[in-house]
Design a protein around this nucleic acid. Structure first.
Lengths: 215, 215, 215, 215
DNA sequence: AATGAATGAGGTTTCATTCAT
DNA sequence: TATGAATGAAACCTCATTCAT
């Protein structure tokens, strides 16, 4: 494993293409399932270039992860500053998570795989990134509770419900399309497309959190 | 891929050991990451015996999945018959899902991986198993809504929140132990252990579903 | 690197063929120059069998070395017991070294390469084997000196002269054949073949060691 | 392989650095073990420059060898002219060989490797260089014998004993340091350092060559 | 039913060499 | 001259699968 500090400084096209393709492939088939050959071919890059620009497979994986989660963690912290009430912050949080997964569905899949593996193989840099995100949620809920606007709850429950639901929804689209009879049944009462799902989650989460849902 | 109908007829010890070990290994490292050698060694079985008793790697995987999800789907249907109100049924559902994951943490992990892969490689038998489970949830919520006890909601939201939160919680134990500073912060307001987490989920879900949370 | 204890117990034909071929190849082209593929092909063995029976390239190399030098060291110790005077022991030593290199020219070459590399990559087991051999020489000369039959000398000088000359002679046959004009010149005064060379060394060494070469 | 005539015409610094580093690296790990990348990095030179200034790996190797052995051969011939008696010439020869190896230990190692490989891959220019050196020894001993001062001996024996012992001693320093218990034993009777070793060789060789060692 | 050995395809990684700038 | 990037062949090693016993 080599140095993994992101070198996005230079507009290094090849590196960029490798990273993007790698993210895609890792998310589709996981670390073990990914083939360096396949990444190279898909990125239109000579296989040796991956080793030249980035390093071995493990390093590549780490860099992909760090790039994704590091950015997400930082971006979220900034967004939260602009929201005022805890309710708004929760909304911001949910929608940002959703947006991230939407823009780059790889993230949902990679994250699920890593959780499935218990994070055992997560490099420490990435663990820190995730910690940052969770920390944000803890803060929001803390604030809500101390302002007497939220029920006292385990913030981890909230975080995992949001993350879990969004991740699963994003990731399970293909499987849901294999179940048309079920999907049909649900389509009657609620549209299945993206926007409505997030809103559904938002509604449910807020209703379960806020003390007077008289609003 | 060979025939995959479970042959639980005989108390075949070797087969049993293979299946259990395989479940464990697949859950830890996924299908691609699993090595037939490793499964054999861990099960104390000659590698060729896996091929003799069960078949190739893919078949082994399918049989493991089917055994797990088939049982879970059937068991749940029966349990739900014993519950009366939609609220009780939701509780039963949550706790059963939780119990299943608790008894055999492999399931959570395998499921997450499969969702991460978009279920692309899920054999149809298993897709049916999952459909059965989702179908149950749809029914419960349907019932609750038509009895005017539940807000109208997208049942998929509910299902994915429950499944997602429980799966993530189960699967992420190792990662959470890597984050003691975060875990500490949350321990102050809510115990992190298993029982409390499910109850937290239950409370949040019910609060978000039921119409009068005056109760 | 895996366990390297020689398992000559079973008449494992494949392992034997691998080891012998490996010795040959390593001696011809050195560790770095040797190709696992080539060894496998020359041994008429599937490449994977090398990894199955022995382990990786490094392990294979270590086992080859240990087998050779271990045997040589042990055999020499026994032979020396049968000789009486220090002079006889020196002769035994010289001729045994010569015989070993003669029976298996690989040894000379491998040893030279290792010395050239400063033994940097010699595994410890093999270093011990070599130490045993050197130890024998030290003892002989010690004995000769204390019996007042040998001049006081640095035993390392003697050992390296013997080893060096024999190794070089064995190893340099091909190069000498490239120099016919030189070889011709020398053939006039001394036959170049094997037997005479050892005898030449023996004579020179004894003359330089013994106090009264009254003969 | 490209043209290999030394182009020492210009004080070409880059070429010089490449050649020196290459000598070092080749001597440490041999031809096959050497990496062009490593040589370039160690020489602080862009890898492509090696190809630009010198040529491919084989050419580089040949030039390194020729430079070393050509110089040595020529220098020796001159030195021998200044010595009078065969005894003096033998001393000159021994000490010059020793000095050469001392000033540039690479030579000992490279030579050993080449001998180990049977000189199979030695380019003809270098074979000539070596022939020149051997020729000198043959002449000295011839002279000593015809003057009735030396026993009749095979000059190759003498040459290989000297070369072999010095090469081995130089090259085996690292391995000897791995054997402190042996080294200690010998330190009692003879100091192990460089100067004494050559003198030991000189004494032994002369005693074995000269007719009346009453001197 | 069980075992150890065998196979061949394919995976990751390295390396000498060349090219564009 | 000098550089960083690119290339393709080949090196080492692994793995699912099968075979002989």
């Amino acid at each position: 494993m080599q140095d993994t500090t992101p070198q996005t400084s230079r507009g290094d096209d090849t590196t960029r293409r490798i990273m993007d393709t790698a993210a895609e492939v890792f998310s589709e088939v996981g670390y073990a399932g990914a083939r360096v050959d396949a990444i190279a071919k898909k990125a239109n890059v000579n296989k040796a270039m991956i080793y030249y620009h980035i390093g071995d497979k493990k390093t590549l994986y780490t860099r992909v992860l760090h790039e994704h989660f590091g950015q997400a963690a930082n971006r979220m912290r900034e967004l939260l500053k602009q929201a005022q009430t805890p309710e708004e912050k929760i909304k911001t949080y949910i929608h940002y998570i959703n947006q991230v997964m939407d823009e780059n569905p790889s993230k949902a899949a990679i994250m699920m795989r890593e959780m499935a593996g218990g994070g055992r193989s997560l490099p420490d840099v990435v663990v820190e990134d995730i910690a940052t995100i969770i920390g944000s949620v803890v803060q929001i809920i803390d604030e809500g509770i101390s302002q007497n606007r939220f029920h006292p709850v385990n913030p981890m429950c909230v975080h995992l419900m949001v993350i879990g639901a969004l991740m699963c929804h994003k990731a399970s689209r293909p499987i849901r399309q294999k179940l048309p009879h079920i999907a049909d049944a649900m389509d009657q009462m609620a549209a299945m497309d993206h926007g409505d799902f997030v809103n559904g989650i938002e509604t449910l989460i807020l209703r379960s959190l806020t003390k007077q849902n008289t609003a």
